[in-house]
C-alpha cells in the first residue's frame, strides 16, 4: 500500500501515537470500574477512540488522493521557537531587559529582511516598553536585571 494522501496519513499517525501514549502511560493509575472510575478510566476510553480515529485516517491516507505536505520552514521555525526558549532561559539569569533583546534579535534573524538597523532599535524599544508596561505598570513579578548582575 502506498501513501496517497500524506496529510491524512500523517495526521492519522499523530492521532494513533497520542492515543496509544494515553492508553499505555497510565498503567499504574488504576482503571477502576464504571461505578468507581479510576484515574485511567476516562483517558483510557478517549485514548482508545483516538487510536481508532488515527487508524481510520491512516487507511484513508492510503486510499484517497491528496496534496503533498509542503516542506517545513526549519529556518524560521527554529529561530522563532529558539528565541522564545532563550527568553525563558535568560529571564532570571540576565533579567527581563536582556531576555527581551535576545528574543527579538533571535526571532528577527528568522526574517529574510533581517537587518541590524531595524532589529536593534526594535529590540531596545520593546525591552523598554515591556519593562515599563508589565513590570512598572501591571506589576508582573520579573527581575529587570537578573542574577548575573549580582541581584
Amino acid at each position: 500500500m502506498a501513501i496517497r494522501h500524506p496529510k491524512d496519513f500523517f495526521t492519522g499517525v499523530m492521532y494513533a501515537g497520542v492515543g496509544a501514549a494515553a492508553l499505555l502511560l497510565p498503567r499504574d493509575y488504576g482503571f477502576g470500574t464504571a461505578l468507581r472510575m479510576g484515574p485511567a478510566y476516562f483517558p483510557g476510553v478517549v485514548g482508545g477512540l483516538l487510536v481508532l480515529v488515527g487508524m481510520i485516517a491512516m487507511l484513508r491516507g492510503c486510499s484517497a488522493r491528496g496534496d503533498e505536505i509542503t516542506p517545513f520552514a526549519w529556518r524560521e521555525l527554529l529561530r522563532v521557537l529558539g528565541g522564545v526558549v532563550l527568553f525563558g532561559l535568560l529571564l532570571f539569569a540576565a533579567g527581563l531587559i536582556a531576555a527581551i533583546v535576545a528574543l527579538v534579535i533571535v526571532a528577527a534573524l528568522a526574517s529574510r529582511r533581517f537587518d541590524w538597523r531595524w532589529a536593534l532599535p526594535l529590540a531596545l524599544g520593546l525591552a523598554l516598553f515591556g519593562a515599563l508596561l508589565f513590570v512598572q505598570g501591571l506589576g508582573v513579578q520579573m527581575p529587570l536585571a537578573g542574577s548575573w548582575f549580582g541581584r
Binding site: 528565541g83 528574543l103 531595524w118 520593546l126 508582573v140
Partner: peptide
C-alpha cells in the same frame, strides 16, 4: 517583520 517579534514578546511575558 517588525510585528512578529513584538507579538512574541507579548506572548512570552503574558504566558509567564
Amino acid at each position: 517583520h517588525l510585528l512578529y517579534p513584538a507579538i512574541l514578546v507579548f506572548c512570552a511575558i503574558g504566558v509567564y
